[in-house]
Design a protein around this nucleic acid. Structure first.
Lengths: 225, 225
DNA sequence: ACCTGAACACCGTTCAAGT
DNA sequence: ACCTGAACACCGTTCAAGT
């Protein structure tokens, strides 16, 4: 057995990095730990990401952003090193020329994207200060612009609508993730000072449903009602 | 001159940490660098934040979240060590019982909060996975719930409206910060593949105006129209 | 081309010690 | 109570070397 040529690839590295983020959190994603998980020396990663960890982060964000790529949820039992997923990667359906109405296309994107952000919510901090100029991001933006144009909007209104849609999904996910910790016993300080919060403390929230309804309202509001 | 008792305080530490974040970025905020900026040994910070850097991050997020506290923009010229801001800190106006109509109160909060997030956009990644259960966050939530109740909403609708408002501001800011890098020469890959993006590439965006209009639309949509 | 192993500068945090 | 200084385990990254 040669100790070289461990079958590393950018795809496999990103997938493993995401598994660590999902399972242990972003702070625990370390080049050395990532190497261990890939059964390789940490420095081997630099051969596929010469610009280092920041470039790896870019790759991770791209991976999550790319709705055309199948996403791997956190697998509890790990079949590990037996790499049966070698060829896989850029099978992007090759654009089957989606013929659904514009609003269905936008809804489908929004729900897919939300699901991916929630599944990898530990990577959310990475998303924030990375510019959305990857191919995956541009593909999504083009999809949005095409749909809103089809809906009858003109130039600046299309751009505004695209911005609003992106902001909506991101904002909803961030809110949901932040609130996720709260249902516990008590926010500690709900004494007499915050009566309205105390009164509404046990009102459950159906995030899924709220997202869907909010999205419908937004789309209606953006394209004349 | 005693080298002890350097006049350190949680407030001063947080302020200095924010200055580093705003000026150099979150990654450059280091306990040692923070110590240097405070003209103190790095380990002195641990006396005010015994739980370490994570607790400091909590403090930073609280500071930004607390709209009732005056915010310090990034000062170019630095009057430095001459601490003339000793007493300052928890002067929160002591609740002057805001008597403006509910929507004006919400608009004021939203614009203030947005401005703070934009001013300290480098700290946005910290906001994301911290639970909004600080006193400052609960005060804001109580303000929202009170306003929406005054607007005529009932139980679950109030909670939904509060969630939507928070998500809106966060989402808008994150979108704006992400897009901030883009107006440059070219997103690199606007060849023939993304015709709609290419066509709308030079449509400028007035974020301030768009935020205001979107907020108005949201408030109208949330409270019967 | 792909990976290893030692090395370097730096990091968060602990702890005993000073005043 | 408040801060220092040395120490420890760990980190990202470089570089020469192996195959």
């Amino acid at each position: 057995m040669s100790r070289n040529n461990a079958g590393l690839s950018a795809e496999r590295i990103i997938t493993e990095a995401l598994r660590i983020i999902d399972g242990q959190g972003l702070r625990r994603l370390t080049m050395r730990r990532l190497g261990d998980a890939l059964e390789v020396e940490a420095m081997a990663v630099y051969h596929h990401f010469p610009l280092g960890k920041e470039a790896l982060f870019d790759g991770i964000v791209d991976y999550i952003t790319d709705v055309s790529r199948a996403d791997t949820p956190l697998t509890p039992g790990d079949p590990s090193s037996d790499a049966s997923d070698d060829a896989g990667a850029d099978d992007a359906d090759d654009d089957p020329a989606d013929d659904r109405p514009w609003d269905d296309r936008l809804r489908a994107w929004a729900h897919d994207y939300r699901a991916r952000l929630l599944r990898h919510s530990g990577a959310l901090p990475l998303l924030i200060n990375r510019r959305p100029d990857s191919v995956a991001a541009l593909r999504a933006l083009d999809l949005h612009y095409a749909a809103f144009t089809e809906a009858g909007l003109n130039g600046p209104a299309v751009v505004r609508a695209g911005a609003a849609l992106d902001a909506y999904v991101t904002g909803a996910v961030v809110h949901e993730v932040r609130a996720a910790g709260l249902p516990g016993p008590d926010p500690a300080a709900v004494d007499g000072r915050f009566p309205h919060v105390a009164a509404l403390r046990d009102v459950g929230a159906d995030h899924e449903r709220q997202f869907r309804e909010g999205l419908d309202t937004l789309l209606a509001g953006l394209t004349g009602r």
